[in-house]
């Protein structure tokens, strides 16, 4: 029975390929994936043609086993298409529909070729449905995997971007932290800071947490670790930019930061300058003082 269905499907797709392709591109055009403007019609047609040709070959080589050897190249093509759709920003529905919309033309063609033989028609439809569903799911899997990749890469980029160490003055570094501190990020932050301390021969590092949305016990612990590591290297740390609400929450939670802390980066910088024996003076005032 199954063998029959495969035969029917294979024969239909081979004989009626041109008509199926025509119906399919028509269906694709109507489904609206063109309207978003993300893909051109010619490109869509090329993809459809390639997929259909490979589907025909795969049916001949691998029967209905969509996970088998015979379907390897078709799966690869679909994966490529799916990946490019994920990056182009297509919705999952659009992407899945690319394969699922092939069903109707194939069933139409089956009806045309096997209308007289009801059991052959049913077997063909069953076989076609089964294999196309499997291919559609494969497309979705690749689509999701590519999205995960994109998200993962972005997460990594954010982590890298959001931990810069800036040199404010000779021997004074600032580390503006943005976003929540977790263990992984603390590791990156710590390494960056310590390496910068070595490179710049810094005496003082200012950790600015204006961009940290919440400070709980865990974040405080991570901060303290960073401060302790910097101290072991011979650099002092000042924590700055603790917002009023956060200060309140920290006190309520019983979180203690046993480090020098200042409300703003400017205050911390002033302390750092004073400790390194420097001072910022207004030029005019200085001139006025000289005159006196």
């Amino acid at each position: 029975m199954t063998m029959d269905g495969t035969e029917v499907l294979k024969r239909t797709v081979t004989e009626d390929e041109a008509a199926i392709l025509g119906d399919w591109t028509g269906a694709l055009r109507e489904s609206g994936s063109l309207q978003s403007g993300r893909i051109r019609e010619a490109e869509l047609q090329t993809q459809a043609k390639a997929v259909l040709a490979q589907f025909r070959d795969a049916l001949a080589a691998g029967g209905l086993d969509a996970d088998g050897e015979g379907y390897a190249s078709l799966r690869e093509t679909l994966a490529d298409i799916s990946r490019s759709r994920a990056i182009q920003g297509f919705t999952p529905t659009d992407t899945a529909n690319f394969v699922f919309s092939l069903k109707e033309p194939v069933f139409e063609a089956l009806r045309r070729t096997s209308a007289a033989d009801a059991s052959a028609l049913a077997a063909g439809v069953w076989a076609g449905g089964k294999v196309l569903d499997r291919l559609g799911l494969h497309t979705m899997e690749v689509f999701l995997a590519s999205r995960e990749d994109v998200i993962g890469r972005q997460g990594q980029e954010i982590a890298e971007l959001s931990t810069p160490v800036v040199r404010l003055w000779d021997g004074i570094l600032a580390l503006p932290l943005i976003g929540t501190l977790d263990s992984a990020r603390t590791g990156v932050v710590m390494e960056n800071l310590l390496q910068a301390i070595v490179d710049e021969e810094a005496e003082i590092a200012i950790i600015d947490i204006t961009g940290v949305p919440t400070v709980d016990t865990l974040v405080a612990q991570h901060l303290l670790k960073t401060v302790a590591a910097a101290r072991l290297m011979g650099a002092d740390c000042i924590v700055s930019g603790i917002r009023p609400q956060i200060a309140q929450t920290m006190v309520h939670l019983g979180v203690e930061l046993n480090v020098v802390s200042k409300a703003t980066l400017a205050d911390a910088f002033a302390v750092a300058l004073r400790r390194t024996g420097r001072k910022v003076v207004r030029q005019q005032a200085a001139v006025a003082e000289e005159r006196r």
């Binding site: 390494e191 301390i197 070595v198 021969e201 005496e203 302790a228 590591a229 072991l232 290297m233 011979g234």
Partner: peptide, 28 residues
């Protein structure tokens, strides 16, 4: 005074919970 500790060593000591309180440190 302990001088010239490497970053990796500093991180390791902190992770071990040894913060060397009471010892002065210097970069070089």
């Amino acid at each position: 005074v302990v001088a010239g500790m490497r970053p990796a060593v500093a991180i390791t000591l902190v992770e071990l919970g040894l913060e060397l309180t009471g010892i002065k440190t210097a970069l070089n």
